[in-house]
Design a protein around this nucleic acid. Structure first.
Lengths: 329, 329
DNA sequence: AAGATAAATGTAATCGATTTCATGAAATCG
DNA sequence: CGATTTCATGAAATCGATTACATTTATCTT
């Protein structure tokens, strides 16, 4: 393969001049510029990215940590990130953590070895104290995640407001016995919980510990939890779920058991994924603008790289959630 | 940041020896080895990837071209690719073409500039003659795509067999008037069409040109086409679709119009996405093992890189499709 | 027209690793 | 024990770009 030296020799110029042409620098005469362009085409020359990266001390590549590629909400975020990345000449390396703490840390090695300029987390597996040290190596942005100790930019959705909105909706529909399905104990789950209980308490409603379910993520989980709910002696009349997949599976399971949604039991989704408007009845859900926080996170990342934004101090950018009322509540 | 020279100086050794330790080469005494390891830890040293890539003339990065990240079938493929990549120390750069010919070509520049070792296509937008020249720059693998002129490895699903299977199923159910929804005119669509018409002709059934619909990909398309079908004077009793999304939207649209699926009209999906078993009635569909072809494509890619497999001659690896019978037919 | 300024180009150092080749020390062999 | 092989290590070239600095040439001032 041709190198810059080959182009230089071919044109009789120095590699410095060729480099200037490649990078569109001024102070190169028009005729030499053309000469170089012709030579590059003639020789089939393309600048070597590794060499440029080494010299320029940057790669224009960002690592995006994502738990599962097959989760539509995360690919929506990824889509938003990609849109802005592509518009600004950045490439994305995808790092699927599969919710493994170890993999998450492994991927941070890309930052230490300077294979990427920075990292965007769309979820965090480890305790923040394990992540924090890596901020020394480049910008780290949290997208859809939040940690009160983290001194990095965080682009998030107002989960408190979102779950508050959804819960209040259920209450307004007359429900007094509401089951709550949560994910882990992450910051995001914590906030949702705050919003949920805020609405519950405002309405002066009782909550039973039997009505709280943890670690519900997948359709499988939805089916399982719904069956547990059916077993309860004091059965709730509405269910607040942590995602449309869980909710969809529950709607389906309800039908299997001959229960009518929402008459017998109301089900509230979260995310507003495509599936929400496909199943019958259509899901009432909380719309999360995944592509928008993705896009915003990438924008913030670029600002950090360019030094327009402080990358090692806490900054919270919050986008609103909205309630989409359909037929499952 | 510390460099290999810093480690060399700190230990009093040469950078050559340090490099040997980093790469686990033999002929380094145990005590020096430990000395170097301690120094690396002490100095917080990490080898610079750009420098290594430059010197080693490889990056251990693969570009994956994908039309849309938000298409679950493609993320399933991506998931399979990722699994094998991660197991073999490769990183993936995602290239979302959004079905743009120009973007597809733009991404091939990553190969020319040696930012990636090779490319996996999960769909092709341009004519093959425009892609072919790029095979000179590194391995190119087609995954879920096929082109008879392409002299590269192709990992594909037997679309002919798949659509044949599905169509025969419809015929066995007694249908004689079957609408056919296709995507573009790509190799994949071409094969599906072959399988479809093979079954049609074997059964000696008539086909009307009114019953063929092009460019149906999304839920929107499904809705639109279904409405067109309703307008037909001679209305088909079954619909062969090119994807579960299209089929799902049709099922929903049918219900909206008070039609019963499958009694009034049968609908056959393609892919077996999660949604297929969530909607009511559950979709009969063709299961496409997306993650398996993804994984296989990455395996083949690695073989090409290692020279175990010829990368510039045609090789077709074909995995079977299977019919999943549920309630929509 | 002399001096100052700006433009065009080149030389060589640099980015941070890997690797060939050379050298001396240690181990093995007959 | 001398010859040969293997081991441990280092000096310096190399991968392919970018850029600070130097130099020459052209343009501008007054």
């Amino acid at each position: 393969m041709a190198t810059i030296a080959d182009v230089a020799k071919y044109t009789g110029l120095s590699s410095a001049t060729v480099s200037r042409v490649i990078n569109d620098y001024p102070h190169v005469s028009e005729d030499k510029r053309k000469l170089v362009h012709d030579a590059m085409k003639e020789l089939g020359y393309f600048p070597n990215t590794s060499a440029r990266n080494l010299r320029n001390r940057k790669t224009n590549v960002v690592a995006v940590l994502i738990p599962r590629l097959t989760n539509p909400f995360f690919t929506l975020i990824l889509d938003g990130i990609e849109r802005v990345a592509e518009a600004n000449g950045f490439q994305l390396i995808i790092c699927q953590t599969k919710s493994s703490k170890k993999k998450e840390i492994d991927f941070l090695n890309l930052l230490q070895t300077k294979q990427v300029d920075g990292v965007i987390f769309t979820s965090i597996e480890n305790e923040w104290e394990y992540i924090q040290p890596y901020t020394a190596y480049g910008p780290i942005i949290l997208c859809n995640e939040y940690h009160h100790e983290a001194t990095v930019p965080m682009v998030r959705l107002d989960q408190i407001q979102g779950s508050y909105l959804g819960t209040r909706h259920l209450i307004e529909k007359g429900h007094k016995k509401i089951a709550y399905c949560m994910g882990s104990t992450s910051g995001l789950s914590f906030d949702r919980r705050l919003g949920f209980f805020k609405a519950i308490e405002e309405a002066g409603i009782d909550m039973k510990s039997d009505w709280i379910f943890r670690d519900t993520y997948t359709m499988e989980d939805g089916k399982r939890v719904f069956q547990q709910i059916l077993q309860l002696s004091d059965r709730p009349t509405a269910i607040f779920t942590g995602g449309d997949e869980v909710a969809s599976a529950m709607v389906k399971e309800a039908r299997t058991h001959g229960l009518h949604v929402p008459r017998d039991i109301a089900i509230l989704g979260f995310d507003d994924q495509p599936i929400a408007s496909l199943i019958e009845p259509e899901l009432t859900t909380i719309y999360q603008p995944g592509d928008e926080i993705g896009a915003r996170a990438m924008t913030v990342f670029i600002e950090c790289l360019n030094g327009i934004r402080e990358r090692m101090s806490q900054a919270v950018i919050e986008l609103p959630l909205s309630l989409v009322i359909r037929d499952s509540t």
